[in-house]
Amino acid sequence: MEHHPHHPAHHHQQSAEQGTGWSTAVRATLHCLTGCAAGEILGMVLGTALGLHTGATVALSVALAFVLGYALTMRGVRKAGLPLGAALRVALAADTVSILVMELIDNTVMVTVPGAMDAGLGRPLFWASLLLSLAIAFALTVPVNRWLISRGRGHAAAHAHH
């Protein structure tokens, strides 16, 4: 039987592979979101509570998102027995693009929503904007992670050590 790309069996095989790719990308993005969201929320809360300028608050949020995102990955690969230097290299390879995309999107949303950065911690506008920014960042980062993983990059680097 000749193998034809439009044959139903081939289509089923492609669909199964694509489903696995998307579920892996969602899991990788959720992992990234955990560290990013913790850093982002902590940075926004600290910057807002301290009355920092918008630029300083965003910078603090981005820095904390990277630190906590990398730390989360490093914790996992260190448990697998990797030494600190190797764990840092894996974290940098696994998370840099994902965190960068996520931070670019969620901070753009926070700065773009009128009044969100000045709303203060007690206002629903601040928290709703922050949650919305993280949800949009997650949704737009999943395809990026899927593309990276399909090429053996991004979170695929960390999975080799789990």
Score class of each variant (00 low, 15 high):
Glu40Ile: 06
Val113Ser: 08
Gly47Lys: 02
Arg27Trp: 10
Thr29Arg: 00
Asp118His: 12
Ser15Glu: 15
Leu140Gln: 04
Arg75Gly: 10
Gln13Lys: 04
Gly21Arg: 07
Gly81Val: 07
Gly69Asp: 01
Ser150Leu: 15
Leu52Thr: 00
Leu42Tyr: 11
Leu121Met: 05
Ala116Asn: 08
Gly35Ser: 09
Ser129Tyr: 04
Ser150Cys: 07
His155Phe: 14
Arg151Ile: 10
Leu72Asn: 13
Lys79Arg: 15
Val144Thr: 05
Ala91Pro: 03
Gly152Thr: 15
Ala91Trp: 03
Arg89Met: 13
Leu100Ser: 15
Thr73Leu: 07
Pro124His: 08
Phe126Ser: 04
Gly85Asn: 08
His12Leu: 11
Gly39His: 03
Val67Trp: 05
Gly81Leu: 09
Leu46Tyr: 02
Thr141Trp: 06
Asn107Cys: 07
Gly35Cys: 07
Ile105Lys: 03
Val58Gln: 08
Thr141Asp: 10
Leu132Trp: 01
Arg75Ala: 14
Ala38Lys: 01
Arg123Glu: 12
Leu33Asn: 00
Trp22Pro: 01
Ala16Val: 14
Gly35Asp: 03
Arg89Ala: 15
Cys36Asp: 01
Arg78Ser: 15
Ala38Leu: 14
Ala119Ser: 11
Cys32Val: 01
Cys32Gly: 00
Leu64Phe: 08
Leu72Met: 10
Thr20Gly: 13
Ala116Gly: 11
Gly21Cys: 05
Thr24Arg: 12
Gln14Val: 14
Val26Glu: 01
Met1Lys: 12
Gly115Leu: 11
Ala158Gln: 12
Thr112Phe: 03
Thr112His: 04
Ser23Ala: 12
